[in-house]
Amino acid sequence: MEKLRHANQLLQWSEQRQLNAAQLQQASERYPLQPAPADWLAQANLILLFGTTVLLSSAVIFFFAYNWPHMHYFTKFALAGTAVLLSGLVAVCSAPQSLMQHSALLAASILTGALLALIGQTYQTGADIWQLFASWAALITLLVLVSKSRACYLLWFVILELAASRYLHTRSEFFWLFASAPMILNLTLVNLLLMLFADVALPRLGVKPDNLLLRVSAVMFIVPHTYGGMLGAWDNHYQANLLCYLLLSVGLALRYYRYRRDIFVLALLLYSAIAVVTSLLARLLELSDGFFAMNLLALFVIGSSVAAALWLKKQLRRQAGVSA
């Protein structure tokens, strides 16, 4: 994969006319510009292995759903428990940190949630859905830490996000869109912790460097973060959300521009800022002429978006030059 990244960089320089044909040909002798058959095979094996893991785990869940009325609950528990134990046994017998072990631990993590749902459905515990997701995330935490697998961490992040979102749904009328200011602020802070965990803690826990987890957690963070800031422009009850938005945005912008250059996160922060500033301008122009206000807001959105895109493109080129 490292050779392919070098090839992508060389092709970008060639498109930008920073390398001529002779220089590109000379560089291609060290870094092939096209993936070899072995690279395609390795990537296909990775996709097929984890695709098989997800599909087999889903097949077990759908098997219980389809045959639910026709099986005794002891049979259901025996089959579900056996599936979890088999996946755990495969993980123990596999080579440490191998693809097989990662896929087995991913299967065990998914099937643990199916077993929890089976227990709740059988005994009608009366627990809310968010409690199921929270229990699921807590039970697989050790498996995720042991796996050091990005797929397992991605599943863990999604489950935690679902638990937090469903909890807010039980406290508001419709999801978290009509939640109170403290609830949106709490969701923002929870997602911020996940984002910082993906950025700072994962490399120290032995997870291979990858931007996917950081960017997924950044998206989960930026949505309620921006929403709270936009509400703060219109409703005094959300002033704390707006203040939190300003402080966190400035801090994160400094971090991901000066200390850890990540164009994707910077783009999220930039366009989030455009949305919040547009909301503030709309509040200031609330009593102005409607035609004038709409055109001014449209010009601001178009102009700021173009400026943000040009700045991001410049930073991307600068980053490409530094990484050489």
Rank of each mutant, 00 (worst) to 15 (best):
Y259H: 13
L213F: 06
F50S: 11
V60R: 03
L79F: 11
F133P: 04
A309R: 15
Q97K: 13
C93G: 13
L242H: 05
Y238K: 04
R17I: 00
L205V: 03
P182C: 01
G206M: 06
C152A: 15
A127Y: 11
T170P: 00
E161R: 02
A80V: 06
Q239P: 00
A293V: 01
R258F: 13
R5G: 02
L280T: 00
Q18Y: 11
K76S: 08
L254N: 08
F77C: 05
R255E: 07
A137P: 08
L281G: 12
G88H: 00
I110G: 02
F50C: 03
S147T: 10
L111H: 03
G228L: 07
L33M: 03
R17K: 12
G303T: 12
F133E: 05
I222T: 12
A298Q: 12
F63P: 00
L86I: 14
A127G: 04
R150T: 14
A275K: 05
A27K: 10
M100E: 10
L242A: 07
I47W: 15
G303M: 07
E173V: 15
A218D: 04
D199M: 04
W13Q: 10
G232Q: 03
L284T: 07
A7L: 12
L99H: 08
L268Y: 09
M71C: 02
G232R: 04
M71Y: 12
L139T: 08
L280E: 06
W156V: 00
L85P: 02
A59D: 04
Q34D: 07
E2G: 01
L154G: 12
D262C: 04
L115C: 09
A117E: 05
G206A: 06
V223S: 06
R171P: 00
K314C: 05
T188V: 10
A308S: 15
S172D: 12
I47S: 14
D210Y: 02
A198N: 05
E15G: 03
V144S: 08
N191Q: 13
L85S: 10
L231A: 10
W136A: 05
L254F: 11
Y31I: 05
L242M: 09
S94D: 02
L177G: 09
A108W: 01
L56N: 08
A44N: 03
L310E: 10
T226P: 03
F291V: 10
V250Q: 06
E161A: 14
F64Q: 09
T82F: 14
M100F: 08
R261Q: 15
L310N: 08
S14D: 06
A117K: 02
C93I: 02
L243P: 00
I61V: 15
F64Y: 13
W176M: 12
L212H: 04
Y153S: 01
L246A: 14
N211D: 13
L11C: 11
S28A: 14
S305A: 15
R17S: 13
Y123D: 01
A307I: 03
Y245E: 05
F291A: 13
I263K: 01
K208S: 15
A324V: 06
F63K: 00
G113W: 09
S279C: 05
L248Y: 06
K76V: 12
V207L: 14
F175L: 15
L132T: 09
L106N: 08
V190D: 08
G229F: 06
L247R: 02
G251Y: 04
P32Q: 08
P182T: 05
L205M: 15
M230E: 09
G206R: 07
T141H: 13
Y238D: 02
N236A: 14
T226E: 04
L106Q: 07
G206Q: 07
M100Y: 08
